[in-house]
Amino acid sequence: MDYVNLSEEALRTFTINIFQAIGVPPDDARQAADVLLKSDLRGIDSHGVARLSGYVRLWEKERINPDPKVRIVHETHSTATVDGDSGLGLVVAPKAMKIAIEKAEEHGSGWISVRNSNHFGIAAYHAMMALEKDMIGMSMTNASPLVSPTFSAERLLGTNPICYAFPAGKYPPVIVDMATAAAANGKLEIAQRTETTIPEGWIQNKHGHSSTDPTELRKGGALLPLGSNPTHGSHKGFCLSATVDILSSVLSGGNYGPWVPPFVAFLEPPSDPVGLGIGHFLGAMRVDGFRPVDDFKQHMDNWVERFKNARPIDESRPVVIPGEPETAAEQDRSINGIPVIRPVYEDLKHLSRKFNIALD
């Protein structure tokens, strides 16, 4: 596969400058870029700078407000609903998570439901913000309807990711970050760009039959829930996705189910919205609200060690702790640069020419 290796600094500067070029204030531009770069650094290439041109196209369609007035519209001591004013989810979600953390500092936990936002990048970024305060973080978002519920050929749910972040002591934090679909849509996009097939069980065609064609969504097909089919537990993925949808948007007043606006600019949002924009749900819990932090971290380390030492089926494939591959990728890419596949690099070069902003 053809890659172009770019430094973190070059990509970060370029991304900040692109966001500023579409009217995002400097601080917000740095925040948005930080979310995308964290994705690339952690090896989640589908949600990093590969998405940058998508945000620009949404801005061109006037579906993103580059300078939103993010505000609390409903509040108790430990909860709040935040309106993102159609801003970048890359900006709205971190602001909402900061509110969750502030509430947790004062009241033990903080829970924020967000409406009127847009795609917020990787869920891990927002959940991991709580780690800096020795808290457990949680984040989730609903997304464009690309997933069929179990037994359906109709697309009603998004990939609806969910993330939990747990601090540890001498080991890296445990980060449970996953889509509630069999695969994230970004993985299909990468497969399309690299002209490769996808594994069986990720997607079905418009008739409900399994396919390995990553372009099937364009033909009326759908992603499958986590579990892929009823025999392998797809009803569990459906239930998890439903939970994300309800907490993110039914609770906040955002759009849910088939009314969630699409991320791609060439598709128009539904003409009969039931709410405002995309929704998120974020939370933070103080560990010391349950037990002393040092005790918790000591036992987290013990948990990690026991699972790492689990007897493997194959000695060459030991148990992988949630978040371990991403931590390793971040350590490597911070030093050696970020490999960008050629089609994404060409997208970035197009933006470079469009806005007259140097890339490398």
Rank of each mutant, 00 (worst) to 15 (best):
T79Q: 07
T79Y: 09
T81V: 15
V82K: 09
D85Y: 02
D85F: 01
S86W: 03
G87K: 06
L88Y: 07
G89H: 09
A93L: 06
M97P: 02
I101D: 09
E102D: 15
A104F: 01
H107K: 11
S113Y: 01
V114L: 06
N116C: 02
H126Q: 13
H126S: 12
M129C: 05
L131T: 11
E132D: 15
I136E: 01
M138A: 09
M138P: 00
M140R: 04
N142G: 09
S144W: 12
S148P: 01
L157S: 08
G158C: 07
G158E: 09
P172T: 11
I175Y: 08
I175W: 07
I175F: 05
V176A: 14
A181L: 06
G186V: 04
I190W: 08
A191S: 12
R193W: 08
T196A: 07
T196M: 08
T197D: 14
E200N: 10
W202Y: 14
I203Q: 13
I203P: 02
Q204N: 12
Q204R: 15
N205H: 07
K206S: 15
H207F: 02
G208D: 09
H209A: 11
T212W: 03
P214C: 04
T215K: 14
L217Y: 04
G221I: 05
L224D: 11
